[in-house]
Design a protein around this nucleic acid. Structure first.
Lengths: 112, 112
DNA sequence: TTAATTCATCGCAATATTACGATAAACCGG
DNA sequence: CCGGTTTATCGTAATATTGCGATGAATTAA
């Protein structure tokens, strides 16, 4: 088939998977790290930072925008990109909730 | 093309993307949550927990095993799955490092 | 040994992702 | 208005992912 059966899972699980998918490419990880390192938004040429064609980077930025982790505002002839603070924190909290489940559950449990 | 240009990125970025890719499907999120909820490993029938065919779940488990987040040991006629504690913590730390970068960098910076 | 159970793997079909050249759209300086 | 710069989108090709039926391998119970 090739189609994720999203209906079979909870909204929370689908949302978490969406965020993970946005992080599931080294170029997008690199873009996010670059945006985080900057003092404020990056206006223009993220292209120069990566060894990828302009069209490819634009596509990765689109993915990050669609999932809400990044916002872009037109600033004259350039476009300024920065992390979307609220969504960024929401995604962080969701991933934290997966890795640090509720109270006493940790992966150090005894195994077979 | 369709081939990730892993050579263009750092090992850290590629590794992070690998882990994110493993989480980038709701079925795998559900499997991990189920393994975390259990007292110890799950021996047999994770299949009953999800609305997916046995072959599909086996494939998702293979992905989780290949990336190291899950380990499986044969126990008689069944197979016991559990979270791989060290790798789980390593992945958690790597994702934390992305979301909470070094000292003063946070996404609350001023934007355009 | 035989039948049942459990899980992995193969093979296929459908869809998604990745990458990039080409091109379009929007803006600015002159 | 006219080039130059910057970014988005389109179209295409290559590859990856998802899902599942069918089949195989290993074990257990009888």
């Amino acid at each position: 088939m090739g189609l994720s059966k999203t209906a079979a899972f909870t909204a929370q699980q689908n949302q978490l998977a969406e965020w993970a998918k946005a992080l599931a490419h080294p170029a997008r990880v690199a873009i996010l790290q670059h945006l985080l390192q900057m003092e404020s938004c990056v206006c223009g040429s993220i292209v120069n930072e990566l060894d990828l064609a302009q069209a490819t980077i634009s596509q990765h930025l689109k993915v990050l925008k669609q999932v809400g982790l990044v916002q872009g505002t037109v600033e004259g002839s350039a476009v300024c990109y920065c992390i979307h603070p609220e969504n960024w924190n929401t995604a962080r909290d969701a991933l934290n909730a997966l890795f640090n489940p509720s109270p006493a559950q940790n992966p150090s449990k005894v195994c077979c």
